[in-house]
Design a binder for these strands. Sequence first.
RNA 1: CGAGGCGGUCGGAUGGCCGCGCGUCGCGGGGCAACCCGUCGGCGUGAGGAAAGUCCGAGCUCCACAGCGCAGGGUAGCGGGUAACUCCCGUCCGCCGAGAGGCGAGGACCAGCGCCACAGUGACGAUGCCGACCGAGCCUUCGGGCUCGGUUUGGAGUGAAACGCGGCAAGCUCUACCCGGAGCAAGGCCAAAUAGGAGGGCGCAGCCCGGUUCGCCGGGCGACAGGCGCGCUGCCCAGCCCUCGGGUCGGCCGCAUGAGCCGUCGGGUGACCGGCGGCCCCAGAUGGAUGGCCAUCGCCGUGCUACCGCGAGGCGGCGCGGCACAGAACUCGGCUUACAGGCCGCGCUCGCUGA
RNA 2: GGGCCCGUAGCUCAAUGGCAGAGCAGCUGACUCUUAAUCAGCGGGUUGAAGGUUCAAGUCCUUCCGGGCUCA
Length: 110
Amino acid sequence: MLARPRDFEALQERGAIRSNALLAARTLRTENGITRFGLATGRTLGSAVVRNRVRRRLREAIRSMLPSLRPGWDVLLIARPAILGADHQAVMQALRRLLAKGGVLDEEVR
RNA sequence: CGAGGCGGUCGGAUGGCCGCGCGUCGCGGGGCAACCCGUCGGCGUGAGGAAAGUCCGAGCUCCACAGCGCAGGGUAGCGGGUAACUCCCGUCCGCCGAGAGGCGAGGACCAGCGCCACAGUGACGAUGCCGACCGAGCCUUCGGGCUCGGUUUGGAGUGAAACGCGGCAAGCUCUACCCGGAGCAAGGCCAAAUAGGAGGGCGCAGCCCGGUUCGCCGGGCGACAGGCGCGCUGCCCAGCCCUCGGGUCGGCCGCAUGAGCCGUCGGGUGACCGGCGGCCCCAGAUGGAUGGCCAUCGCCGUGCUACCGCGAGGCGGCGCGGCACAGAACUCGGCUUACAGGCCGCGCUCGCUGA
RNA sequence: GGGCCCGUAGCUCAAUGGCAGAGCAGCUGACUCUUAAUCAGCGGGUUGAAGGUUCAAGUCCUUCCGGGCUCA
């Protein structure tokens, strides 16, 4: 469910970007039939402990909306500092909006 | 009782639902097999005392290497511990503290070089002032006074330090001892596609012109075989096939049993060492596994409040907020730094009080 | 994960161990109708932090903090 260095470069160059207060997302269609996620947590977020926690919470949010994803997308999620103070509900909502806008989320489930 | 000192130790607990990494068993699939794969299920297991900073020291791996020296870097009372250390223990000395105690890169100005600002006569080259002493000259009321030169056993003053075998080596340096370089992105193995390399095999047709050292070379014409999936037309070209090694993407190993932990006995002032017995063997990721939601309890802060007490306060109930520093990445031994709140020990200290 | 470098005024940089400076920028005044330029003057620093060596530390030593580069 994760991407390799080459895929990150592709997302940086050609991915469509959308963002809100908590997150930014780059999305890119692929041909390999599965949807993959990459998580970016920069040094400005905080220490290793803080960055690990942010990634875990994002993974949990992604997991809970796994069934309603469309196949064939690469998604890079970039965490923004405001996510540190957000609770789980807020993270879920932010992620759902970004994915729906990008067309990664299935319309009916939305 | 209060204030401290030293050493050690813990660093939230229990449970529910969902989820993750690794190991193992089962099931299913692939393969002759070794083994590999997973939308699956069961069981087991899963961060620290600092995992951190990367400041030292080792193991391990590759490279280099006859020996010795030079260069470069490091260490520095003395003795011991250790695989090793800049670490640890003991002890001497110096400094700090009222004390328990803490801190210390603590060898040598012997050889050479350098530095010692300001102040001060003078900072290593010396001798200014007062005084004392010696000598010479002048004056004299014969008590002595003045001037000049010399000496430094005294004094004042400046300064961190004042002539003394000066001080400074966390200045160069000297002395003694130690050190080869890189680092797990080390290094090893497997190994696509494309291109290129080596070896072998197969295949081709020659003719003409020019040059020639008679080995061949250059140009032109031509097209059997070969290639474009096959046939014809057409087009292309000197190759085509096999094997081998290097090597990129990618994958696997290295990769977790170790200077290991616990108990006990013995030796040693101690660091530590030795014997015996036991051990659930206790994380192994590779975009990097511990999370999400919730309940109960514990601790801390805060607000309201019942009761007890003259009072400082004590003891309950309820609500809200919080629970430190921080996340393994080849592995150990140290050091340093960060850290809410506790617990234990001392035949350690000081103060007050009581017997 | 490993290796290496840097840190002085708002900015760019100096300073044999001996009172921390230069240029630009800033402020005040002059010149000008005004601005720019020019001239005169002024302020501004825990030398990243804390210890140590020294009579004396930006400089020497140690430990932290912050920033940057690099590897296949």
